[in-house]
């Protein structure tokens, strides 16, 4: 059996008295994709923050490509290496870009930081990335305020790809986009996976989006995993009552919402 890209064991994070994440384990294969499904307070974003080093686990282990990632990086260089391997795309493209930085400078900064090279080689790489995510010359020279939500999210994705990560954590990365743009970005993410072999962790409350982009899924509630399996099995034949409730809460043709209490 090949070594998984990411292995999480008995991960726990306590804030004060409250366990936000309580004994979560999962693995992501190289080139694989995992959805973390859950509502507010389920602990899904806390897991994302621990994966990219923004939070330290209270206990449990994070192993990335055979290397322990549970403890803090010991040097600036190590921190940068880690950051290059796992990258995060945020939900809101309106607050995650620097408004005073042109798009090309924003992407070039990531190239300089993670990949180095001369101005010429970076420019060539920038053009490849822009082509991959669908940004034109004019948009590269623009400031974020001149771009739509979908264009901004393309910039965020290009910047993440500049680091050539092995794992991208998508934290509700398409939730704020209009339907027609969401489809474009979802197709783009599928294309990028085909082209680069990158792994995804998709954190989402949107089960249809989860189905489109991932093969495996875990369902979380109050910091624990309540169900796991292939995404198709979880959505077509949920076993746990909570997963069934989530599934039944999705509006669809002929859906009549029911009042559960009162």
């Amino acid at each position: 059996m090949t070594e998984p890209l990411l292995q999480i064991d008995a991960l726990r994070k306590v804030f004060g008295e409250h366990a936000a994440v309580d004994g979560v384990s999962f693995t992501v294969a190289r080139g694989g994709s995992l959805a973390i499904v859950g509502e507010s307070g389920s602990g899904k974003t806390t897991i994302a923050r621990m994966l990219v080093g923004l939070e330290r686990p209270t206990s449990g282990t994070i192993t990335f490509a055979g290397q322990d990632r549970t403890t803090a990086a010991r040097s600036q260089g190590e921190r940068r290496t880690r950051a290059g391997e796992v990258q995060l795309v945020f939900q809101d493209p309106y607050t995650s870009l620097d408004p005073r930085q042109r798009v090309e400078d924003c992407i070039d900064e990531a190239l300089r930081l993670f990949r180095g090279g001369t101005t010429g080689t970076r420019r060539a790489r920038l053009e490849v990335l822009a082509e991959l995510v669908g940004l034109d010359e004019r948009q590269l020279r623009a400031f974020p305020r001149a771009l739509s939500g979908g264009q901004r999210q393309r910039v965020a994705i290009a910047r993440v790809l500049a680091a050539e990560p092995q794992l991208i954590v998508l934290d509700e990365a398409v939730a704020a986009l209009d339907v027609s743009i969401q489809a474009q970005v979802l197709n783009l993410l599928a294309d990028i996976r085909d082209a680069t072999g990158v792994s995804y962790i998709l954190i989402s409350h949107d089960l249809a989006v989860v189905r489109h982009l991932t093969e495996e899924a875990i369902v979380m509630r109050n910091g624990v995993v309540v169900e796991r399996g292939t995404t198709a099995a979880i959505l077509d034949d949920p076993q746990e009552p909570y997963t069934q409730l989530l599934r039944d809460s999705v509006p669809r043709a002929g859906w009549r919402p029911q009042r559960r209490n009162s």
């Binding site: 089960l207 249809a208 669809r252």
Partner: peptide, 24 residues
Amino acid sequence: AALVKARPDIGATSTRLAAIPGRP
């Protein structure tokens, strides 16, 4: 029709969505 088709379907796995070109 384009909006209906652009949404991912919770009931079926698809590889590509029928995205609407351009932006609103």
